[in-house]
């Protein structure tokens, strides 16, 4: 199996108003993600968690440090790690089926084989019957389902999710959380997800990592020892609430800090 190693990652960007000045977003971040685990990164908005995800995906290069996936240093996007975007990133000009087949086409599979595999994943995300629709005919939840099927169809080893349910209403969000848990349990893929939603992080994860305000450092790294499989009722248990509270307190303090520093500036 595959392990993701994040080794001394720093990332700085040029400030938009001043080319010569750089601002540090990620400050020497190191951690490891065990094969088959489900990890959530939480942090105040603008803390650089998406930047880290983009570096792991291979869309961005780190300023310092390296990321190893399965022991190999990452130097670009690779279908071993597919990404699920908050805004879905579906190809508007392709049907649901065409979207799911895209990665298989990139692999060079023949058409009938592509169709067969795509239908399997269509079924997995409960989208059978919508395969010939275009993304603009789908609801947000269905779009994200199609995007999940597309990301899974290439059989990646790891799934990177960038606030995957952030654009959905809370009912759809809860349903999709359960579906992602089910998919994770049946496929055993390593999942790294990013969210600003504490409830979602506690409900889904084996482990939660909390980032500080930029330059981001890890301020909390805890294992969530709630039993599995998890069902929505677990939210009512005191153990869930305790974890939720402890994570929320830390996150809240950090978010307030950034708000405070912005006011005095």
């Amino acid at each position: 199996m595959q392990k993701i190693e994040i080794i001394n990652i720093s990332k700085s960007f040029h400030k938009t108003n001043n080319e010569s000045q750089e601002s540090l977003i990620l400050d020497d971040i190191s951690f490891e993600i065990q094969p088959g685990s489900l990890v959530n990164i939480l942090g105040p908005s603008g803390c650089g968690k998406t930047t880290l995800l983009n570096i792991i995906a291979g869309f961005l290069n780190p300023t310092k440090g390296e990321i190893r996936f399965d022991g190999e240093v990452i130097n670009g996007p690779n279908p071993k790690r597919t990404v699920i975007f908050q805004e879905y990133g579906l190809f508007d000009w392709k049907t649901v089926l065409g979207n799911i087949e895209f990665g298989l086409k990139a692999k060079g599979l023949p058409k009938n084989k592509r169709k067969e595999i795509a239908h399997h994943y269509l079924d997995l995300v409960h989208l059978t019957g919508s395969e010939n629709k275009y993304p603009n005919e789908l609801s947000g939840g269905m779009k994200q389902r199609a995007a999940i099927a597309r990301a899974l169809a290439v059989e990646p080893e790891g799934l990177l999710m960038d606030e995957p349910f952030g654009a959905l209403d809370s009912q759809t969000r809860n349903i999709l959380q359960d579906e992602i848990l089910e998919i994770w349990q049946t496929t055993g893929k390593t999942i790294l997800s990013i969210t600003h939603n504490v409830d979602e992080a506690v409900y889904l994860s084996d482990r939660i990592i909390v980032f500080s305000n930029p330059p981001a450092k890890i301020i909390l790294d805890i294992n969530i020892n709630l039993p599995r499989p998890r069902f929505p009722e677990i939210r009512l248990e005191s153990k869930f609430k305790d974890i939720y509270d402890s994570v929320w307190q830390i996150l809240r303090k950090e978010a307030l800090k950034s708000k405070f520093s912005k006011t005095i500036r």
Binding site: A57, F59, G76, R81, V83, L90, F102, G103, A106, A151
Partner: peptide, 9 residues
């Protein structure tokens, strides 16, 4: 980005 991470050349 979506295309690249799905392996598109």
């Amino acid at each position: 980005n979506a295309a690249l991470c799905l392996g598109a050349r």
